[in-house]
Design a protein around this nucleic acid. Structure first.
Lengths: 174, 174
DNA sequence: ACCGTATACTTCACTAGTAAAATAGTTCTG
DNA sequence: CAGAACTATTTTACTAGTGAAGTATACGGT
């Protein structure tokens, strides 16, 4: 049995509902930022969750796929720390992901002759093949999420998001 | 030593760089959806990470705080399953979070007399107080992320995001 | 009333990610 | 050129989240 919390409100989306509930119980708080930020975090989480499901046929996790993608779009082998800087995960995670990807034969660790502490990572041929087949599909799924938005609308959206991204990235320092 | 992967490109943001690298190595893939979806997932992850840090003084994790918020904006006690439906986490997680929140005296479990399987959850007075002080601060941080965008721009943005959210939510079914 | 099926929550065993310690290599300074 | 200070990666010990099994309760058909 599905328990209905309220009467059906057909045109209300998840974020509208959250804001309405806050308005009803906490009318003194101006929750307007949720209109944008709530939708961004909701869309982000759902999109990543769907990507997880799409990837599980490929045999690598989303985090591992991200590592492969970073390497695939680089024109040279990268240091482990360069991969870490891009993925938003810890260095310890990078080590684990590379362990597994190396066991699968998708990446290789190379020594860096100028500095013995450094590990250089590069894709093997089958790593490259995996990205070449999975990445275009990933972009296609992203394109589906934008269905119904024309090019101009996407450009406006990207421009506004770029400004928010700049605010958010600057908040990371310190 | 910080290793510079490329010459500095001052006006390029994270997403621009990703797209440029794909364009250089995989020119046959049209990566335009990344312009929007890449920024959404990046902003989402960073905003959540910053929220985590802001919350650690409060003694509850972000996931636990989400549970408190769901209860705080409801006008009645909720079933565990209703909380689960909103948080995007598993039922097992809800049990764990409620265990800890109950140990902290922030929520209480009540029996539901019409159905013995159900657990009703409601905030204690100190749970309510925690939300009343933390939630407005959370909204303020979200507002900072929107700094520099005027009301019209936010409205346009929210409208476009609403359409993407609808696409993404419909992809969840099945 | 009884039994099979369904449901709501919890427990268990496992995986992913992390911070901090450990390891190994480099650089700086006298 | 020793050794102190620093840096890059790995290991370790831990926490958060999960799917699946377990438990208790409800319901539907006979």
């Amino acid at each position: 049995m599905v328990f209905m919390s309220t009467a059906p409100r057909p045109d209300e989306d998840f974020t509208d509902r959250v804001r309405r509930e806050w308005a009803e119980t906490h009318p003194e708080v101006d929750t307007s930022p949720i209109e944008v930020m709530g939708r961004i975090t909701r869309i982000g989480s759902q999109a990543l969750q769907q990507l997880d499901r799409a990837l599980d046929a490929s045999g690598v996790s989303r985090a591992e796929f991200d590592v492969l993608c970073v390497l695939a779009r680089s024109d040279r082998p990268l240091r482990a720390s360069e991969v870490t800087a891009v993925t938003m995960l810890s260095g310890a995670s990078t080590t684990k992901h590379v362990d597994r990807l190396a066991r699968l034969g998708l990446v290789e660790r190379l020594p860096f002759e100028r500095d013995g502490r450094v590990v250089l990572l590069h894709l093997t041929e089958s790593g490259r093949q995996l990205v070449d087949t999975e990445f275009p599909q990933r972009v296609e799924r992203d394109r589906q999420f934008l269905a119904g938005l024309d090019e101009d609308e996407c450009a406006v959206l990207a421009g506004l998001l770029r400004r928010i991204a700049a605010n958010v990235e600057s908040g990371l320092r310190r």
